[in-house]
Amino acid sequence: MIHGRLQLTARARLALLSTVLVLGSGITLTALTYVLMRRNHQVVQVFHTTGGGGPLPPIEDISRQVRSAALSDLLAQAAVALVVVTVLAAVLGWLVSGRLLRPIREISATAQRSSAENLSERVPVATPKDEVTALAGTVNTMLDRIQRGVAERDRVLYSQRLFTANAAHELRTPLTTMRTAVDVTLDGEPTRAELVAMAGDIRTAIGRSQRTLDGLLALAQSQAGPGDQRLLDLAAIVAGVLAETAVGPLTVRTALEPAPVRADPVLVERMIANLVDNAVRHNRPDGDVTVSTGTHTGRSFLRIANTGRPIPPDEAGGLLEPFVCGTGTRMSGDGGAGLGLSIVRAVVTVHHGDLVISPQPTGGLEITIQFPLASQLTAGERSKKDSSTTTV
């Protein structure tokens, strides 16, 4: 193997290639002209008068001498012309290849200037439409995807940092409560009543920590993606969740039309249970809950609305963030972990759905979720689903 071979640039290779092509074409043309002239045997007739001159050489010798001289002149002149044309081809090839490769150098320079901190620059796309223009468009499309990916990465990292800080705070609060209860109770000779009160405080704090950990686990499972996806009916799942939920004095109104989706049944059931629990928990004592399902514009939807306190429009979107509960701040003392709607959003996202949360003019929220419409059930799947679904 030969090491240290000369590495030519693309511009040098293009110029060398054009020079070699011109040189080869010139040599071929000269050789072809030379061969054709050698095969030219035209008869040369020489006329002379008798006089005092000596005898003339034979006609064949004169013809041969003329042809030999012509071929020699042809080779000499062709060699000079070939050298000139080859040098000119080399110069023009170098200049033309540089002009042709200029857009590629601009693309390379733009790619080198791009970084994770600066992805806004794009390659200029000129006309006419050709291979280089297509390459520039492809590079710009790639930079767009990279920019979106970096923005999404930054958003996820920020959300994870915020989530971790909130989770640490929420888990530290019950620990602080337990430590304070123990220190205050054991500072002296505690009575039985004081010990019982301390145990109650510790039990309450442990329950709060357990709810927070359960919510964190459910959120992590929802964000991990769907597992075994099956053909489901949102109406049937909503009916089952409502049958198992204690709504107290609230009035529940339903309009459940078939809404087929292909999704993970565990995640979808958890999503609907969180929505119903949120609608019941954040409601007036004499309020109502309205749930509807069905299909619209080629998508299956689930809509749930409740009554409650008026919520400012700029506060509604924040309710989807972790550890935000009711007032747009950290968890309130209503027994919730502040993760219900965060889990709902995660389930909708992994199933490629859409979620819209809107405050109602009279108070409360209306949450609408849309999923891609599942394909129609076959007869066997429909009978199997009907036999395993309980209608409420």
Rank of each mutant, 00 (worst) to 15 (best):
E257T: 11
E60N: 07
G225W: 01
V238R: 01
I237H: 01
T245Q: 07
A243N: 10
T164L: 10
L302R: 11
T9V: 07
T389D: 03
T327N: 09
A181W: 01
C325T: 05
Q376A: 15
D233E: 04
A224V: 07
L92H: 04
D233W: 01
R203L: 06
L135I: 15
S114K: 00
L319G: 02
V139Y: 10
Q160T: 11
L157D: 10
A31Y: 10
T176P: 06
L88T: 14
S292F: 00
T290M: 04
L71P: 06
I27V: 15
A168V: 06
A181Y: 05
Q65E: 08
S375T: 13
L6R: 11
D61N: 12
C325P: 00
T295L: 02
V347E: 01
T212D: 03
T245S: 12
S332W: 03
G188S: 02
L234V: 06
I27G: 08
R38G: 13
V123Y: 01
I59T: 13
G207N: 14
T389G: 05
V289C: 03
V96P: 05
T176Q: 14
A12T: 14
L29S: 15
G333M: 09
T86V: 08
Q77M: 15
T164K: 10
A109R: 12
N283I: 06
F47D: 10
G51R: 10
E257R: 11
S375K: 13
A239V: 01
L74K: 07
S292N: 07
A76F: 10
G335Q: 01
I2E: 09
R330V: 11
V268H: 00
T245Y: 02
V43G: 08
R179A: 15
L88M: 12
T28F: 15
L14F: 08
D201W: 04
L275C: 06
D314N: 11
S358P: 05
A69Y: 15
V347G: 00
R13Y: 04
F163H: 12
M142L: 09
D228Q: 11
R99D: 06
Q370N: 13
A181M: 02
V241H: 02
E60M: 11
V125C: 05
D144A: 08
L71D: 03
A69M: 14
A151Y: 05
V84A: 11
G318H: 14
M142G: 15
R5A: 13
T391Y: 15
A116S: 12
P258T: 10
A379V: 13
R172F: 07
F47E: 09
A337R: 05
L302H: 07
A305N: 08
P359N: 09
V344A: 05
S25R: 09
L6N: 08
D386N: 14
T293I: 03
R105C: 01
P265D: 00
P57H: 05
I2N: 10
L14N: 07
V80S: 07
D201Y: 12
I357R: 11
R99L: 15
E244W: 08
P174D: 03
E321S: 13
L92M: 10
L219Q: 03
L216E: 05
L171D: 02
R11A: 12
Q65K: 11
L302A: 07
T180F: 03
I206M: 12
E121S: 12
S63Y: 08
F163K: 10
V261K: 06
P359M: 02
L216F: 09
V184P: 00
P285A: 06
L234A: 01
V268D: 02
R230M: 04
D154N: 11
V156W: 14
R179L: 14
R284E: 06
T50Y: 14
G364C: 03
